[in-house]
Design a protein around this nucleic acid. Structure first.
Lengths: 217, 217
DNA sequence: GCAGAAAAGTGCGTGCACGCAAGTTTGCGT
DNA sequence: ACGCAAACTTGCGTGCACGCACTTTTCTGC
C-alpha cells in the first residue's frame, strides 16, 4: 500500500486537528468578524495550545483560507492525471484547473465575502495558489515521462503563476464591484479569467510534450 | 520630464534612508552574524526609529537581501527593452535576465555566503525574484504592443517563476556543497541554470509575439 | 506486551510586524 | 514669505511567529 505514506494513525490525527483548526478559524471569523478572533481563541476552541496552532499554520489568515481551499491542490493534480491520454498537455491542465476552481464545493458565499473584504485574507488566499505547484509538478512530470526534472517544475510554477494572476484580477474586480455599491457576490466569471490567463502558456506546455514524445521514441 | 515622478527631494531622501537601512543591515549582519542583529540596531545605526524601519522593510531579512539585490529589477526591465527589435522576445528576455544575474555587481562573496547559510535569508532572497514581475510586465507589454493586458502579466509572472526555480535549485546545490565539506562558493553556474529553466517558456514567449505581430497588421 | 525511539504537543521567552494617533518635516500656491 | 496640506516619522500598545527545552503520546522491533 502506498496509501497513507508514513504511519497511519499519527498522520490521520494530524489531519484531523488541522481541519479542526481551520474549520474553527473560519467559523469564529464568520461569527465574530475576523478582527475579533485571536489565535488563542481558535486554539482553545479545538482544545490545543496556541503553540500547537503555530505548528500547523504559520499565520492567522492561513487557517481561515485553508478551510476554503481544502484539498484543492490534490484534486487538481488528480484531475490532470485523470485526463485521457489523447488530450494534449495544455488542454489537460487547463480543463483540470478550470474544473476544480469552478466546482464551488466548500467556499460558502459568506466565506468568500469575508475573504474578499479583508486585505490580509485576500493576500493569504492569493498565496494559496502556490500550493498547487508541487502536486502539479508531479502530475506534469508523470505526463512528460519526467525526463528533464526542471521542465515540469517550471511549467507547474508558471501555471500556478497564471492562476494567481487570474485570482488577483478576480479579486480586483470583485473589490471594485463592492465599492461600486452592489453587494453582488464575486464570480466575475473566474473560469473565463482562468482560461484567459492560462492560454498564453499553452504553447509552452504543448511544446514540452512534443519534445518529451520525441525523446521517448 | 518624466524622470523622478513625484516630488524630488522627498523621494530622494526616502531612497537614501532606504539604502542606508539595507546597507547598515548587511554590514551589521556581516560583522556580528545575522542572529546578533536586532532591528533596533539597524534603525539606530541609521538614526531612525525602529518603527520607521518597518515602514521601509516588512521583515528583518528583507533589508539584508535588498542590499544585494539592489535595483536588479529595473536593470532587467531596461535590458529587455534595450534588446534590438530583431531579437525574438524569448531570446531578448533570456539574454537580459542571464546578463543581469551574471554580472556579479554588488553581491560580494561574503554576502552570498551569509545568505546561503541562513534559511530565513535564503527564503527572503528567493522571494525577491517576484520583484521583477512588474517591471518585466511593462517591458514585455512594450514589446507586444500591449494588446491583451493579461498576456504580458502572465508571461512576466511565468518568467519570474522560472527564475525562482533556478535560484532555488542553485541554493539547493550550494547548500549541498557546503554540507559536503567543500567551502567552495556557489556559482554552480547560475547562468546555465537560468537558461535551463527559462527554456521551456520560450515557445510561450515567441507565440505571444507572433500573435501580437499578426494582430498589429 | 514492552522498552526505547520518534514524533507531536506544550510553556516560556523574545523579537518583531503593524495599527493608531499623535508630532514633525517638506513642498506648493499665492 | 507664509501658511496650509500632504507626506514622512515616531511612540505606544498589542498580538503573533517561532526557537528551545521539556513532557506526553504514538510507533516499531523484539
Amino acid at each position: 500500500m502506498v496509501t497513507t505514506r508514513r504511519t497511519g494513525l499519527r498522520e490521520q490525527k494530524k489531519q484531523a486537528t488541522r481541519e479542526a483548526l481551520s474549520a474553527a478559524a473560519l467559523r469564529l471569523a464568520l461569527e465574530r468578524g475576523p478582527d475579533n478572533v485571536r489565535v488563542d481563541d481558535i486554539a482553545e476552541a479545538v482544545g490545543v495550545s496556541s503553540r500547537t496552532y503555530n505548528n500547523y499554520f504559520s499565520s492567522r489568515e492561513q487557517a481561515i483560507v485553508a478551510a476554503v481551499n481544502s484539498e484543492r491542490e490534490a484534486r487538481i493534480a488528480a484531475a490532470v492525471a485523470d485526463q485521457p491520454d489523447g488530450v494534449g498537455l495544455a488542454a489537460a491542465v487547463i480543463e483540470a484547473i478550470v474544473d476544480q476552481y469552478t466546482a464551488p464545493g466548500v467556499p460558502s458565499r459568506e466565506a468568500l465575502l469575508l475573504i474578499t473584504a479583508r486585505p490580509a485574507l485576500r493576500d493569504a488566499f492569493v498565496d494559496t495558489t502556490s500550493a498547487i505547484e508541487h502536486p502539479l509538478t508531479d502530475a506534469i512530470a508523470g505526463r512528460l515521462g519526467d525526463i528533464d526534472p526542471h521542465t515540469a517544475r517550471v511549467l507547474a510554477a508558471s501555471v500556478a503563476a497564471a492562476v494567481r494572476v487570474a485570482i488577483e484580477q478576480w479579486l480586483r474586480t470583485t473589490a471594485a464591484s463592492f465599492t461600486a455599491g452592489g453587494l453582488v457576490v464575486p464570480s466575475g466569471s473566474l473560469p473565463d479569467l482562468l482560461r484567459t490567463t492560462l492560454a498564453p502558456l499553452a504553447p509552452a506546455l504543448d511544446a514540452a510534450e512534443q519534445r518529451a514524445r520525441r525523446r521517448d521514441q
